[in-house]
Design a binder for these strands. Structure first.
Lengths: 231, 231
DNA sequence: GAGTGGTCTAGACCACCCA
DNA sequence: GGGTGGTCTAGACCACTCC
């Protein structure tokens, strides 16, 4: 099938992990072992393990070896008004000890003012030519001691009123995407490079008028989003 | 700040891309150029570019060089009943030529029957001990000639009735996560290794009874999900 | 044929962990 | 101090593209 050595090695290790040959928390063979076992160079082994790290299956610590990742407790964020009681009643699978992992209040990381980035301008329905300024706020959301979310909000500068709070939102639209983190984000969220993050662009509307854009970036091994869909 | 050479190189290239020094579709300096310019080895340059590839900023083709990625047309999938007319009226930002990019009907990739994987069993509220069998169906969803979604559905085997269709769903719950693709998925979805995929686990309910689990895997540079949230 | 991206090898260095 | 993961170097090979 695939002739690339690192793909073969990764596939084999993944299968053994999923079969339970290496239990959760258990240690994989060391780099030297795998080099000898497969007759390949160090970098090739590293490539294979990097793949498994990106998949969230393996964690590596210098001096301690590669270990099968203990699934980090996942915070399932209910995005639309879910009746938590109903959830816990019939569908325990969706809530995992939510109380213990409720994110705390966001901690501010700074406020600045700058021209609206193109994507934000589009969502806020600002004319492109005018190069509107927006107030940019950065926050970090913690669960315990860990950062689980980086939030950047963009609020249009209203004409007469300078720092007026946005009009109360009647509803939101959320656009969900995924991407690799920038190195800075990877450091803040404490994920390895290449480990995907979820990006939610949340547009608050007051009637038909968009009043606020929030971009939420969260590590995908800490957070999952739960949506309720009718029909 | 960061002392790792490849991070510095990646940061610098990213900044120049975003400043427009290298326009969309434009070509970055070649590997040899960057090696000389930064005085590093080939692998270090490769690491930097790999990061940018994972971020979706750069695409590389042997013989043609590294080019600034043209953003692939994003398919914004409306997940809950969105009034498309309303969307296009007030919020054109959310629909991007939807008609042209509507995914076609899924093409079957096979049906089999196997014990329910643990996660699926949980969502279907099957007792763990019983090791229930489920009918597993795999599909590929195309947009034009490209695969944009891989769907695996799990349906409990009903006792008396063998291949009975599931009861009609009254509502769905969707759990959204992101992860790196398995090599096989990367090949099928035509994304580079390490490029994140979005995974939606969609549980269909008939009343309080879960009747079907669908796991949808989609390349995150082709698809974004749009949810409407009240309040 | 020359240049390019992608991968592999062989060897080295460092920070880290544990005995 | 020995083993480990992670990274970097230098050199090589292959498939590919363009001239």
């Amino acid at each position: 099938m695939h002739m690339r050595p690192w793909v073969e090695i990764a596939d084999e290790l993944r299968e053994r992990i999923q079969r339970g040959d290496y239990p959760i928390g258990g240690r994989l063979p060391s780099g030297s072992d795998l080099m000898q076992q497969y007759g390949v160079a160090r970098q090739t082994v590293q490539n294979a393990v990097d793949q498994l790290r990106a998949e969230g299956l393996v964690r590596g610590v210098a001096g301690r070896g590669w270990h099968v990742a203990e699934p980090r407790p996942v915070i399932r964020l209910a995005r639309n008004q879910l009746d938590l009681a109903e959830l816990t009643a019939g569908r325990a699978a969706f809530v995992s000890d939510a109380a213990a992992r409720t994110p705390t209040a966001p901690a501010s990381m700074g406020v600045r003012r700058e021209p609206a980035p193109p994507a934000v301008a589009t969502f806020l329905q600002l004319s492109v030519e005018a190069a509107h300024e927006v107030v940019v706020r950065e926050h970090a959301v913690y669960a315990g001691n860990d950062v689980v979310q980086l939030v950047t909000s963009y609020q249009p500068v209203s004409e007469g009123d300078e720092d007026a709070p946005p009009a109360p939102a009647t509803h939101h639209t959320e656009v969900v995407a995924a991407r690799a983190p920038r190195p800075r984000e990877a450091d803040l969220l404490q994920v390895s490079y290449g480990f995907p993050v979820i990006q939610v662009t949340r547009v608050a509307f007051a009637g038909n008028q968009p009043v606020l854009v929030e971009v939420e970036v969260m590590s995908s091994d800490r957070v999952q989003l739960v949506y309720q869909v009718e029909g």
